[in-house]
Amino acid sequence: MLTKRIIPCLDIKDGRTVKGVNFVNLRDAGDPVALASAYADQGADELVFLDISATQEQRKTFAHLVKEIARHINIPFTVGGGISSVADVAPLLEAGADKVSVNSSAVRNPTLIDDLAKAFGSQCIVLAIDARKFHNTWIVHTHGGKNLTEKKLFAWAKEGQERGVGEILFTSMNHDGTKNGFAIDPLVKLHELLTIPVIASGGAGSMGHFADVFTLGKADAALAASVFHFGEIRIPDLKTFLKNHAIPVRL
């Protein structure tokens, strides 16, 4: 049986791991390669590395880091952050990344998705969507949640699928950093709307939240950062917990 995936996410700036709380305050959570290896050994199913570097110089450090990660870990990983062209993606995949995620640049230029899917295959293109709920509407944001756009979550996710992404990574900005649980309702709607896998992100605080996101939210995978980085939830404990709740996991 295909298992539900647990995905630690590492935000990278200038070669170091950081984690934004509500996308603002950054705390250093260690060396990316060491963290990645530790997660792989603990049974993480995949890893995501997001480059939040501001400068060109820091971006070069990231490309170098991708190679180091690929050398050391034996599970799949996705890289994202600042990708805006086919030319940006090729060196990352050549360095050993399995997938790339696009966010702001795809909102600005949706045909980028078609181009990437055609050049590299749908299976390695992830569309990351950050959205915030206003009244009853989920509005897509870009640039790490700073900029509000005209796009709405469900229409944009569907368009992404039609343009050829292989997976949707949905982050609820209302839930991110709160540790109060994932955004269940929009996840259910995404599950019903899409035929590609959905990764849920934002709000993980307890092991029960992960059980909920799979059983109630129908997510294919769940992504979290600080609960893993700061040892609040250990992946082997989490997987045992999920297994005891009849959720298929790789143990």
């Binding site: 049986m1 035929t195 590609i196 995978a221 790789r250």
Partner: peptide, 28 residues
């Protein structure tokens, strides 16, 4: 059942050439 089939799934009725891999092992 989403497509692509993406993630860790189990091998069943393994025989033949990969002997060191137990039945029901997860692969990506």
């Amino acid at each position: 059942y989403k497509v692509p089939h993406m993630g860790w799934n189990q091998l069943i009725s393994t025989d033949g050439w990969f002997k060191s891999v137990p039945e029901r092992s997860y692969v990506y």
